[in-house]
Design a protein around this nucleic acid. Structure first.
Lengths: 148, 148
DNA sequence: CCATTCATGTCAGTATTCTGACATACTGGA
DNA sequence: TCCAGTATGTCAGAATACTGACATGAATGG
């Protein structure tokens, strides 16, 4: 206990709780993805490609919340391992549209199931209608932080 | 970049939104802390020490969601710069209780004000009673993820 | 038409964090 | 008492992500 009136009570601040929840989610995802030899960014990349085939390196980077340089390193590895394919030459501009291979899809299927389990566990304490409210509140937080 | 009206929905899972919100918060905090020469972990460390003077390196690491090795590196820097103090010898066990200096407190005061502005902006779209619900839902998510 | 601006892919170097390892110190039970 | 288990601080190396920079291509506006 102290009388620091100007400080922020960390354990009860929404920002701290948000970081704590995101960290817990990341740790839980790493735990289930490690047996598959995948990182969270690796999984995010494959999941994004499954939903939106042909995404560019930069678009994947934004979707996975890393820099395009980091995503580029990952894509080179995944291409070498045969999980994704990129054309040797850009068809238009500098963009190299990326797509999943059959092997990539197979790996993703395992990872998706594992991650779905984590997400279900996370949402276990939220009633179905609460989940909608929760998602909506998260979106509003994102909007408020991004618009300025 | 091509338009976003492709008909393909952006990821809408709660887990993805949680990561997106946490990333937006981190970016916003980095933006306001950079002019003060502080990182988010640096700020978290000082804020924790203000609320709970005498925390050990390991306890600070857990509170800031980094490893104790990373926190140790930070504490050595902060001690050299005069923002925190640690006894040369442990009084009991191996624990070295850390405390803020006057300089550390002054820096924290500026940082707290800046971070409070970010948090207020994030919560701007949430009604006061919604904020309580939101925090409670975050706590339930943390509990569900941590108990497994 | 050309210049400016922006976005992309990529290379290089830097910075930060993590994992592994070790010695030390407390704790709880046999 | 002794011992296994746990926790701490710290050193060293590895992994990861970032910032800076450059050339190229597209889009925009004068």
């Amino acid at each position: 206990m102290n009388g620091e009136a100007n400080g922020i009570e960390l354990p009860t601040s929404v920002g701290y709780l948000l970081k704590e929840a995101a960290t817990a989610l990341r740790v839980a995802m790493e735990a289930v993805l490690r047996p598959l030899g995948m990182s969270v960014t690796h999984y995010s990349c494959l999941e994004l490609l499954a939903q939106r085939p042909g995404l560019s390196n930069s678009e994947l980077a934004r979707g996975a919340f890393v820099t395009r340089q980091s995503m580029n390193v990952l894509l080179q590895t995944l291409e070498r391992e045969g999980q994704v394919t990129r054309p040797q030459q850009p068809s238009a501009g500098r963009v190299l549209p990326t797509e999943l291979t059959a092997e990539g899809r197979a790996l993703l299927a395992q990872a998706s199931a594992a991650v779905r389990g984590v997400e279900d566990r996370m949402k276990a304490g939220l009633a179905p209608d609460e989940q909608k409210v929760f998602a909506d509140q998260l979106r509003r937080c994102i909007t408020s932080l991004t618009e300025g």
